[in-house]
Design a protein around this nucleic acid. Structure first.
Length: 512
RNA sequence: GGGGCUGUAGCUCAGUCGGUUAGAGCAAGGGACUCAUAAUCCCUCGGUCGUGGGUUCGAGCCCCACCGGCCCUACCA
């Protein structure tokens, strides 16, 4: 059950890459979860942002003839725009180039340094001048740099190392004591077996680059990009600046991440927290990847039709333009359970759109409005206390609540769509369009409308615009979130005799 | 190469602790209906649970091998 407070984060996205459907997947899921928790009345903090340091950024900026800061200002803005397009409701958008982040990173890592978990050492390795980075022997292809195919040179550099190896036992204990800290279980096992395989200390600073956060106790060094990035979750709650805020939100955080960064979030990050003397994050939820199964996307989506289509080639804006924001959100949330890999295709989204949105939900809104218009004078009739739909609605609410609590938007929406099916089915049985206006007909239509009202509340976290639109059509003021879920899902709690209007189809059926 | 996750109906996915006849939605076929966006409702079809072994009274589930997909291997949700 809700603890009354909900802090959820996405990873911060690296600004060298444009926002695409992969990053959108994470962000939309986090947004819907945040919205659900706001709906049930939790004090909610939803954090996303951009990761802006590192050599690649500096290089790219130079190539464009601008300063790294100017470059990241421009690219970070693209993420904010993309999230606006997807109706993302973040409470805070963090950038690692902000002063507050420099401050928190300095405080946090100094703490680890003082606690004795950071040591200076000389890093010797094979260095690729093209990449300006080190490689290990087993990363090489034919003894050469995998991306530049050139010979590597033996080099050495003074680095600070985080003594990750000292945390093996403590991490294992933490995993043991907190079986639900990393979900799903399959991903937890993955992290666990990585730890059991033995941990090596990690190099966390560079002297060869300057676009990063300087090491407070040794000015010639900057922190390596991943080490400052993870700390953003603390920056946003004022670590080192506002202890009351930290108390309030930490460690009860929910990190939503993709499976490729398990290691950083489930091994490094908890160890870093331990080293700094704070509790590790309470919950890391790892989702899978959306895969494009070899099906060809339309020309407007892919730059080159002959090339294999990658998810990262699809921009949120192009999809939203084609389908609308809520259908895109719905598809991402509904089609694949969080935690396993899923399939992404234009055929898939079209199918969901037509079946779930146009035929089931959209058509229900339309048919109900029409029949209420002809049989109940266009005013919302009173729902029946003995309607079967009352029980079905309560059931859907309970199932949705349970599902969202478990980070399972897919199941929450499934439960909601079962209720939509029940309303369509109930109308079919009663056939109110055949009868003369009567109290019995009113009871049928009033109950169906009341169920639709509850459906509207339940879809709000996934499709806020659509929920608001239906809310208006069924004659209600304000928003489906007013007063919170418990109040809104009370059967018969809405004002009666409201004006119900039909309007244009919410989701016109698609022919493609 | 090494470490790991995964494979269930044409498609997308459930399947608890090993326990009767493996479920849902979509798609397909049939019927009903005509309020509604050719929508809706009811019924039906559809599975050698990747392959081959093993453990067990009993395996989709546990063990081994192999095959395919994917992630990590120190910058990709």
């Amino acid at each position: 059950m809700a603890v009354g407070r909900f802090y959820i984060t996405t990873p911060i996205y690296y600004v060298n890459d444009a926002p695409h459907m992969g990053t959108s997947y994470t962000t939309v899921n986090a947004d819907a979860l945040a919205r659900w928790h706001r709906l049930i009345g939790d004090e909610t903090k939803f954090l996303t942002g951009t990761d802006e340091h590192g050599m690649k950024i500096a290089e790219t900026a130079e190539k464009h003839g601008v300063s790294p800061q100017a470059w990241t200002d421009a690219t970070s803005a693209r993420f904010e725009e993309a999230w606006a397009t997807l109706n993302i409701s973040q409470d805070d958008f963090i950038r690692t180039t902000q002063a507050r982040h420099y401050e928190t990173v300095g405080t946090f890592l100094t703490k680890i340094y003082e606690n004795g978990y950071i040591r200076k050492d000389t890093y010797r390795g094979l260095y690729c001048v093209g990449c300006e980075d080190y490689y290990t022997q087993d990363q090489l292809v034919d003894g050469k740099c995998p991306s530049h195919n050139r010979e590597l040179v033996e080099m050495e550099e003074d680095n600070y190392f985080f003594e990750l190896s000292k945390f093996e036992d403590r991490l294992l204990e933490w995993f043991e004591a907190n079986p639900a800290a990393i979900q799903p279980a399959s991903k937890r096992n993955e992290a666990l077996s990585f730890i059991k395989g033995g941990l090596k200390d990690v190099s966390i600073t560079r002297t060869s680059i300057s676009w990063g956060i300087p090491v407070p106790w040794d000015e010639g060094h900057v922190f390596y990009v991943w080490y400052d990035a993870l700390i953003n979750y603390l920056t946003a709650i004022g670590y080192g600046r506002d202890e009351a805020e930290v108390e309030k939100w930490w460690p009860h955080v929910h990190h939503l991440i993709g499976k490729e960064i398990i290691r950083f979030h489930c091994v490094w990050w908890p160890a870093m927290c331990m080293a700094a003397g704070i509790d590790p994050p309470a919950h890391v939820f790892v989702h899978g990847w959306l895969l494009v199964g070899g099906k060809k996307l339309s020309k407007s989506m892919a730059a080159d039709e002959s090339a294999p289509v990658k998810l990262t080639d699809i921009t949120p804006a192009s999809l939203v333009e084609q389908f609308g924001v809520d259908p895109v959100r719905y598809y991402l949330l509904r089609n694949t359970p969080l935690g396993t890999d899923g399939d992404f295709s234009i055929e898939g989204i079209t199918e969901r759109y037509n079946a779930d949105l146009a035929n089931n939900l959209g058509n229900l809104v339309a048919r109900l409005a029409t029949v209420i218009g002809s049989k109940s004078g266009g005013r919302s009739p009173e729902p029946s206390e003995t309607s079967e739909l009352k029980d079905r609605a309560a059931e859907a609410v309970a199932q949705a609540r349970d599902a969202w609590e478990r980070f399972a938007p897919q199941e929450g929406l499934e439960a909601t769509w079962r209720l939509i099916g029940a309303v369509n089915s109930a109308l079919e049985v009663a056939e109110p369009w055949k009868a003369e206006p009567s109290p019995e007909v009113d009871a049928v239509l009033g109950s169906a409308l009341e169920a639709l009202r509850i459906i509207t509340v339940l879809i709000w976290p996934a499709m806020p615009d659509t929920a608001q639109a239906i809310w208006g059509r069924i004659g209600l003021d304000g928003s489906p979130t007013d007063g919170g879920l418990d109040a809104q899902v009370l059967w018969g709690s809405a004002p009666q005799a409201r004006v119900v209007t039909k309007g244009d189809p919410l989701f016109p059926r698609r022919k493609d």
